[in-house]
């Protein structure tokens, strides 16, 4: 199985389209960093303009590497899942399209193992993509803009996290984000099993993510109560929960705390459930599928 995994990874990283994702992320992040380097103060002002009459806001201090990293991650909510789908959607359907799938299943390995190996290759690709994103988003931002306390703007609250309390939150958030992206990979993987052409699963995954994200963020009561709690896109935002620091009754933040840890764990469990659902469905369908291509 290890040899097969190496082989699958070799196939992934031999395709030029794989590097589109790394290039696209680098381009997006660097463009945002350049923009915030020159006009970052205006962006912070836009976010905090409602406080300008009440407080003297240290805009230049707020615009630091940690804040830039958080702002970039917000802007990448839709883009990174698309880039994950680009590879995961091609894993099985790409083989079917090229006519190599039938050849592959003649090898002395069960269909379940074959599919699990392909899925683990997707997981490794996703992990590497997250590490790349973390490097550009956090390390480069910190090198360019330095560090200071992190100020998080929520709908009704402004949270300030001391700079010594930020790094572990990023590590936890990237870990959670990886799980969220693996859900996207597993969905795309399932659609890939259903198709003989890789364009279909990729486009379908992107469409599902866009529709679900809109439904998650529209704040329409009928969706908020019925559909939204079950959408994986709602729970994929759980990485942000690590930045929602808790406070005491006087509103003083408590170092090392998280506002709703149980909600994050619930979201984590739901995402794991989705991965299990999508991958097991893919295996069941693939095992019964008549491979003709």
């Amino acid at each position: 199985m290890w040899n097969l995994l190496q082989f699958e990874l070799f196939k992934i990283f031999k395709k030029p389209r794989t590097y589109i994702a790394f290039g696209a992320i680098a381009a997006i992040i660097l463009l945002i960093q350049i923009a915030l380097l020159t006009n970052g103060k205006e962006y912070v002002k836009f976010m905090l303009s409602s406080l300008d009459d009440t407080l003297d806001i240290p805009y230049d201090q707020i615009r630091n590497g940690y804040w830039i990293g958080f702002a970039i991650l917000n802007l990448l909510l839709i883009h990174v899942p698309i880039l994950v789908a680009l590879v995961a959607g091609d894993m099985v359907a790409g083989e079917a399209n090229m006519g190599t799938l039938r050849l592959l299943i003649t090898k002395p390995i069960s269909r379940t193992n074959l599919l699990l190996t392909k899925f683990f290759a997707c997981v490794i690709y996703t992990f590497i993509l997250v590490v790349w994103t973390a490097f550009l988003c956090l390390v480069v931002s910190v090198l360019l803009f330095g560090t200071n306390d992190l100020v998080i703007s929520k709908e009704f609250e402004l949270l300030q996290i001391e700079k010594t309390d930020v790094l572990w939150r990023y590590i936890a958030a990237f870990g959670f984000g990886t799980v969220g992206l693996i859900v996207v990979a597993s969905l795309s993987f399932l659609l890939s099993v259903l198709s003989d052409n890789s364009i279909g699963p990729i486009v379908a995954t992107v469409a599902i993510i866009i529709v679900f994200t809109i439904m998650s963020e529209m704040q329409i009561p009928i969706y908020d109560k019925t559909v939204k709690p079950y959408l994986f896109t709602t729970h994929m935002l759980g990485w942000k929960g690590f930045f929602y620091i808790d406070s005491d009754v006087d509103g003083q933040t408590i170092k090392g705390s998280i506002q709703h840890f149980s909600s994050i764990m619930k979201s984590f469990a739901i995402l794991i459930g989705y991965i299990f659902l999508f991958v097991s469905s893919a295996i069941i369908i693939f095992k019964k599928k008549d491979i003709l291509s």
């Binding site: 976010m47 409602s50 406080l51 009459d53 009440t54 917000n74 909510l77 703007s153 929520k154 709908e155 009704f156 609250e157 402004l158 963020e217 704040q219 709602t234 729970h235 935002l237 759980g238 990485w239 942000k240 929960g241 929602y244 506002q259 709703h260 909600s263 994050i264 619930k266 979201s267």
Partner: peptide
């Protein structure tokens, strides 16, 4: 103080806690 509010569409809050 004055009221503080940013549209959720801008902040993309993780709203599992339904603040």
């Amino acid at each position: 103080t004055k009221d503080y509010k940013i549209p959720k569409g801008v902040t993309f809050d993780y709203s599992e806690d339904q603040k």
